[in-house]
Simulated assay, not measured.
Amino acid sequence: MNDLIRVFLADDHPVVRRGLKATIEDDPRLRVIAEAVDGDDALRQIAELNPAVAIIDIDMPGLNGMGVARELVKQGVETQVIFMTFHADEDLMRAAMEVGGKGYLLKGSETEEVCAAIHAVCAGRTYIGSKMAAVLLNRKKESSGPAPLDLKILTQTEKKILRLIADGLSSKEIGDELKIHYRTVENHRTNMCRKLEIEGANALARFALQNRAALQERLYEAHPGTV
């Protein structure tokens, strides 16, 4: 029982909360421990209960979801926050992540993706839902034409490593995640820099961040339900 991931839900719509709770508790490793209908109550309960993950609606009465996340960071609460919202807006998503969010899901996401997001943020990764990733990729295509051809020269393993680099993981952490030696990860990093014709200590990390949405979308297409 001690291995259960404790999850908190904050949304002012009871139907949404019931659906989320049922979805989450279909996974035997997850348990919903409490719920809130407004931001002020959510902040108080999360600070008291210290759940591993809180799924928070951005639009709530009183303190909104972003305000809750900001206050949790100020108070040093270690709960990982996943935002769930109707807003498929890139600027809002970036703002939500800047105030402490670790995940961003659009309402109506596939049920298995909710559980995948919880496990991802508990493992120290960020998680952008596939629907939001598709929105970001489509907007990028509309504003700048086709996605860069550079990514096509990378192997699937290299793309996975690049996605984890964008998440801020070290070579050792990436090795642990992919179950390969960290020196193998370093070799992949060297090969990617050569293929992409980039140089400098932080150049690969910058490239990974700049192409994060495209990487996530392509990996999701290859492995539905994961990032």
Rank of each mutant, 00 (worst) to 15 (best):
N211I: 02
S143H: 11
V37F: 12
V16C: 09
A22F: 05
A203G: 05
S109V: 09
E98P: 04
Y182F: 12
V53A: 09
H223A: 12
L20R: 00
Q156G: 06
V32S: 01
A22M: 13
K152V: 06
G67E: 07
D38G: 04
D176Y: 13
L178H: 00
G129L: 07
I161P: 01
P224T: 02
E25P: 00
Y182N: 03
F207I: 05
D89G: 08
V121A: 01
E78S: 14
I161W: 04
H188G: 09
K159N: 02
V16H: 05
Q75N: 14
E90A: 13
R218A: 15
L137C: 08
E71M: 10
L9E: 01
S109D: 03
R218I: 06
A96K: 03
E35L: 01
E197D: 14
V73A: 13
F83E: 10
K74F: 05
G108C: 00
D27A: 03
M1P: 05
R194Q: 11
R31L: 11
S171F: 10
G225T: 06
K140Q: 14
E98M: 08
R206P: 03
A203H: 10
C193H: 04
Y104M: 02
T226F: 04
M132N: 03
A166S: 15
R17E: 04
I82W: 03
K131D: 14
Y104F: 10
R218S: 15
I198Q: 09
A214F: 06
N138Q: 13
S143E: 13
V73N: 03
R183E: 13
L72H: 02
I33G: 05
L219M: 05
P14I: 15
I58N: 01
R163I: 02
P61Y: 07
A166V: 15
E186W: 05
K21Y: 03
K74N: 13
L209A: 12
G225V: 12
G19V: 02
K152A: 12
Q156A: 12
R125L: 12
E98F: 08
L162E: 04
E142T: 07
E158C: 03
H188T: 11
L215F: 11
F207Y: 15
G225W: 07
A47Y: 07
T155F: 12
V135H: 02
N2D: 15
R212S: 14
L164Y: 12
L136T: 10
E35F: 02
N191K: 14
T79F: 00
H87C: 05
S170G: 02
A147H: 04
A123L: 03
G129D: 07
N202A: 12
T226V: 14
M66E: 11
D167H: 07
G168M: 13
K172I: 11
R212Y: 05
D167L: 03
I33W: 02
E90C: 06
R6C: 01
D150Q: 14
R18W: 06
G67H: 10
G200N: 09
I82R: 04
E197V: 04
T190Q: 13
E186H: 10
P146G: 06
G168H: 11
L164P: 00
E177T: 15
S144K: 14
G124Y: 00
E217R: 08
M132W: 01
K102V: 05
P51F: 04
R163N: 08
T184V: 15
K140Y: 06
